[in-house]
Structure formats: structure tokens, C-alpha cells
């Protein structure tokens, strides 16, 4: 592989991970450039979620063993001295079920700021609040009820809020673990539109079960199978002219 320029924001080199004795990732290598949307597809249990959870160290457990190299946003993720809290500030995560915190809408958006940038003035944080909610297209809907409990919002709005709360920290990478699987078709459309709007400003890595979604939103697509990265290609070519026989069989719906 020839080195892409500019420097990749995510770069994995023969990354392997064992849950106890089960090998969940098997020598995965790839690079992601800043601003692109990469989708991760593959059957259940193929290691997609495991892979993105490595990137912000969400699967740290004494029984897990990791080999190989993983660099995200300039951090050597697995190195001993890595500041995990700072890494997570740069690498936001969106979960399958929208999980706003049991706080007001305002405090949800400003949660990260309260953790990491305590010196912010009221005016600065208000500006961040508005900017973040505008970015995800929620501002007009919630600007008059910022003090309301975030859990009063619709499922779709909650998921957008979960994206909005990452933005005040100016992350470089957004990891999304099946962000639309709990949403109805309208919600899916809205969140996909949002991903498209954020394209270029943030690197987005999206795990999805929905191949149509991968096709619609992503620039490049990774197909994984049993812990292996089978193929990573520009989305259009992966779905039309897959290089690997296994990819072809998967996108034809033969398994998965």
C-alpha cells in the first residue's frame, strides 16, 4: 500500500485482538484519511464493533489481549502511557441505542465541555451549544426547551443529540456503532443526511448491518469476516466489482 497523503487519521497495522482465547480481530491493516466516511460491513460477530471499540479504548478489559499497531488522531492507542481521556476527547462515539445522559438537553451537549474545558465562559459555552445543535439540525426544534430532560425527545432527535454532544470538543473522528438501527425510516434518512453534512469536517467510521446504508453514505467500505478485513475499497467499486470472492458472496446476500 502506498502511503496516502495527507497523513491518515486512523491507521491500523496487523491489529489483532483476543477476547480470552477467542480471536476477534485477525491482523487487520488499513488507513483512513481525514474527512472521509468509511463504513464497516460484515455478518454479526465478524469484529466490526470490536474494531471501532479499539479506536477509543472502549474494550479495555484485563482478559483482552491486543497485538499490532493502531494510531488514531496522532495517538498510539494501545501504548501504555496514552492519555485515554484525551484520546476519547478526539474520538467520539455514537451508540446503537441513543443514550443521552439523564440531564437536560443543554447539559447533554455541554457534558464534554464540562469535563474537558472547565475554563470556558458562559458566552463561549452558549455559542458552542448553539453551534453544535445547529450542526445536527436540532437547534430550531429544541432552542426553546434546552432545560428539558433529554429523554423527552423523539428517538431520532435523541440520536442527533448524541452526535451533537460530541461536537463541542472538536473531535477528529466520530465512531458510529450502528447508529440507525434503533430508528424508523424517517430517522434513518435524517441521520444519514446529517452524516453527509458532517463529511469532510470529521472522519466518520460507521458500523452498519444495512448494506444499502453503507452504499448511500460512505466513501469507502470495509468488509470484514471472522475477524479479518477481507476488502477495503471505494464504496461504489466494492458493491459493483468486489475484488474478493467472499465480498461478492456477502453483498449478494448469500450469508450474513
Amino acid at each position: 500500500m502506498n502511503a496516502p497523503s495527507p497523513a491518515p487519521v486512523v491507521s491500523a497495522e496487523t491489529l489483532s485482538l483476543w477476547y480470552g482465547s477467542f480471536r476477534a480481530l485477525n491482523g487487520v491493516s488499513f488507513d483512513v484519511t481525514h474527512g472521509e466516511i468509511v463504513s464497516l460491513i460484515g455478518p454479526s460477530g465478524c469484529g466490526k464493533s470490536t474494531l471501532i471499540r479499539c479506536m477509543n479504548r472502549m474494550n479495555d478489559a484485563p482478559t483482552n489481549r491486543i497485538e499490532g499497531k493502531l494510531h488514531v488522531s496522532g495517538y498510539d492507542v494501545q501504548a501504555k502511557g496514552t492519555d485515554v481521556l484525551a484520546l476519547r476527547r478526539d474520538v467520539g462515539m455514537v451508540f446503537q441505542r441513543p443514550n443521552p445522559l439523564p440531564l437536560s438537553i443543554r447539559e447533554n451537549v455541554l457534558f464534554g465541555v464540562r469535563l474537558h474545558a472547565k475554563h470556558l465562559s458562559k458566552a463561549e459555552s452558549e455559542a458552542l451549544l448553539q453551534e453544535s445543535l445547529e450542526d445536527v439540525g436540532l437547534w430550531d426544534q429544541v432552542k426553546d426547551r434546552l432545560e428539558r430532560d433529554a429523554e423527552t425527545l423523539s428517538l431520532e432527535a435523541r440520536q442527533k443529540l448524541c452526535i451533537a454532544r460530541l461536537l463541542p470538543l472538536k473531535p477528529r473522528v466520530l465512531l458510529m456503532d450502528e447508529p440507525c438501527s434503533a430508528l424508523d425510516p424517517d430517522g434513518i434518512g435524517a441521520v444519514e443526511e446529517l452524516m453527509d453534512r458532517l463529511r469532510g469536517r470529521y472522519t466518520q467510521i460507521i458500523v452498519t448491518h444495512n448494506m444499502q446504508q453503507a452504499r448511500r453514505v460512505s466513501d469507502r467500505c470495509m468488509f470484514m469476516l471472522m475477524g479479518e478485513l477481507v476488502e477495503m475499497s471505494p464504496t461504489a467499486s466494492l458493491f459493483t466489482t468486489p475484488r474478493d470472492e467472499r465480498t461478492a458472496r456477502y453483498i449478494e446476500g448469500r450469508y450474513g
Partner: peptide, 8 residues
């Protein structure tokens, strides 16, 4: 998970 992933 949400709080941890945000660097709390």
C-alpha cells in the same frame, strides 16, 4: 458507556 466514551 456514554460518559466513558466522552472521556469522563
Amino acid at each position: 458507556q456514554a460518559a466513558t466514551a466522552m472521556g469522563a
